[in-house]
Design a binder for these strands. Structure first.
Lengths: 179, 179
DNA sequence: CAATACATGTAAGTGGTTACATGATTAG
DNA sequence: CTAATCATGTAACCACTTACATGTATTG
């Protein structure tokens, strides 16, 4: 039906982040939540087990750091093997993106719903997307200061454009209801 | 961290399609691939087992139809219990949408990639999105003729807007490379 | 005095995906 | 002769998700 390419998964994505310097699981989550949030979802429940597996496979190494004022932490660093694995994955053919929108699904099926309910859905989504757009835009300057590649800029612009375009449709739809 | 709402899954989505009339698994796939394609991914490997579970739970009933010119088929119809389950799910609080973009991921990490490789990624994605946009727009008239609700129109407009906005960013990025 | 930032992990579950298996008819 | 349309299913796998468990220091 489609090509047999396989998307980069948590494994490769964590390797990619580690490629630019050693990090803790907590920091990896932070990067994922702020800069990649509009095209990837991360949870600690995925990050820590993946880091453990990566270490067992020899793709990363762990360094334990004892801290007195804060909890102890584990700093992970990518190995040469890890680097090779990542570089190979990066060059595979790309695969289709995957979008699952619960709100669009509700709208699709909402013919027997009251206008009031539909407006609640729309309002919720407008709020959510506005917040995400604001969060993304808020850290552009920091990102630029810390070093943003040209291709990372594309991912940023993509996010902003996507949020703006979909927000416009959502708001236009919302304005047709007198509630 | 976030609300505890749970998105509608394959189960509820199939019930939703069956709510508007009986269908075979094959037809359900068709609807999903054409009208909901931009916000939901369906495969036969998910549809048939789900239909089986739904039948076991008494939410749908199966009617076997023997055909001579084509393979036999099973027509599924929603039951009253199925209807109740669906209507309840529809009224739950909505949850965040989920986007996983392999291409944006590659772009994010592509600093050590040659311009040539980046262009390949961009071209692939432009092609894919153009095709999907064309496919979506191509069946607007059929959809309107067969009966499109106002809220379904929102999901259509959302798709078109999203494709157009992201295509614009992709094309602008592509035009910066002289390849 | 509550929330947030810092920090790491496990166990159980699940909602799928991928690959395989089968096969007739029709259109180009 | 090839591809597409019609049509249904299973088995194995797996990458996560959800929920739980634990704790300090700082900020408002």
């Amino acid at each position: 039906m489609e090509g047999n390419s396989v998307a980069m998964k948590g494994r490769e994505i964590i390797l990619g982040i580690l490629k630019n310097g050693p990090h803790t699981g907590y920091e990896i989550n932070d990067i994922l939540q702020t800069r990649l949030n509009h095209f990837f979802d991360a949870t600690f429940g995925m990050i820590y087990p993946t880091l453990k597996k990566l270490e067992a496979e020899g793709l990363v190494t762990k360094q334990q750091v004892t801290q007195t004022d804060k909890p102890n932490k584990n700093i992970y660093q990518i190995t040469d093997t890890g680097m090779t694995v990542f570089q190979k994955a990066l060059r595979e053919p790309t695969s289709d993106d995957i979008l699952k929108s619960d709100v669009l699904m509700r709208l699709y099926f909402s013919e027997d719903l009251a206008d009031n309910d539909i407006c609640t859905f729309l309002d919720e989504e407008i709020r959510r997307k506005s917040d995400k757009l604001a969060a993304l835009q808020a850290q552009l300057q920091t990102w630029l200061d810390q070093g943003m590649t040209e291709t990372q800029r594309i991912t940023f612009d993509y996010g902003v454009a996507s949020y703006n375009a979909t927000l416009a449709v959502l708001k236009a739809a919302r304005s047709k209801y007198n509630i």
